[in-house]
């Protein structure tokens, strides 16, 4: 395992995961993950399907509860039974592969609902914040549209705006472009790149190698429920040391393997 010296020199990590194990029945998906993310860092997690990368991401906001290990976010251990997970999740935005917008609500309402119910913000302020974030993802003119009236790329951008409306400290992206038609991938990646530039802390599970190479501060390669290799994009994607990483990258970067990029 390569260590990496380029992590931003912040005092304490925003996310600190120690010895994480997660099983679904007999399927041991995560087999001892140690992983931390500094504030402002953009980490891309890559790896073959079934490697556990989405499960790792979903453990960070406890959508999956690990059997063993600690998930410490902002110094608070989310696996602690006394932890108020609803409160902790306010600071952790999540964007899903299938968007998961609320289909019965307009783009604007999607962005105001949690502000109102969770943060108790008054309607006017929630609307103001929601509009600001819809503008941030380039959809100011779509606030009255229902999800079904939007393209996949637009839906995913609304989903990003919805998460941002809670003013999270950390954004989790679970294969955010995998369900999109190829021509719609770019608009979502552009929004994500913008967020990274603004200094948002991001953990991105992705198959978009070009995006990882360009935007990530650090790339983590997972296989078989463990972190096989991590480092800068230049190290992991440009010059992988582990055979499994080389093998994976050979497959996804192969120009005859259409759709991998």
């Amino acid at each position: 395992m390569t260590s990496n010296e380029q992590t931003p020199e912040s005092s304490s990590p925003l996310v600190d995961i120690r010895n994480l194990h997660k099983s679904f029945g007999d399927n041991h998906v995560l087999r001892g993950i140690d992983f931390s993310v500094a504030p402002g860092e953009v980490v891309c997690v890559i790896g073959p399907s079934g490697s556990g990368k989405s499960t790792l991401l979903r453990c960070i906001n406890m959508l999956e509860e690990p059997q063993v290990g600690d998930v410490v976010v902002r110094g608070e251990d989310l696996t602690d039974p006394d932890c108020d997970i609803d409160a902790a999740r306010r600071h952790i935005g999540m964007v899903f592969q299938q968007f998961n917008l609320f289909p019965h609500q307009t783009a604007l309402s999607n962005c105001t609902l949690a502000q109102r119910t969770v943060l108790g913000r008054p309607a006017a302020e929630a609307t103001r914040v929601a509009r600001m974030n819809l503008e941030r993802v380039g959809l100011a003119d779509k606030e009255d549209a229902l999800p079904a009236q939007l393209s996949g790329g637009q839906q995913q951008r609304v989903a990003i705006a919805r998460a941002l409306s809670m003013a999270p400290l950390l954004m989790l992206f679970d294969e955010p472009t995998s369900a999109l038609d190829p021509e719609l991938v770019g608009e979502v990646l552009t929004v994500m790149r913008g967020l990274a530039d603004e200094g948002m802390t991001m953990i991105v599970v992705t198959h978009e190698m070009a995006f990882a190479r360009e935007v990530a501060d650090r790339v983590v390669f997972m296989d078989g429920g463990v972190i096989v290799e991590e480092g800068t994009p230049a190290e992991v994607i440009g010059d992988p040391q582990e055979e499994r990483t080389q093998e994976f990258l050979r497959r996804v970067l192969d120009p005859t393997n259409a759709g991998a990029l």
Binding site: L63, D86, R90, M94, F102, T117, V118, M166
Partner: peptide
């Protein structure tokens, strides 16, 4: 109602009851 709806609501910090009331039951 797809499972992802609850997950989206919970990931925004909604309690299980709020997610049921505001997201699942209307659908």
């Amino acid at each position: 109602v797809p499972r992802g709806q609850v997950e989206a609501a919970r990931s925004l910090g909604m309690s299980s009851a709020a997610a049921t009331r505001k997201v699942v039951l209307p659908q």
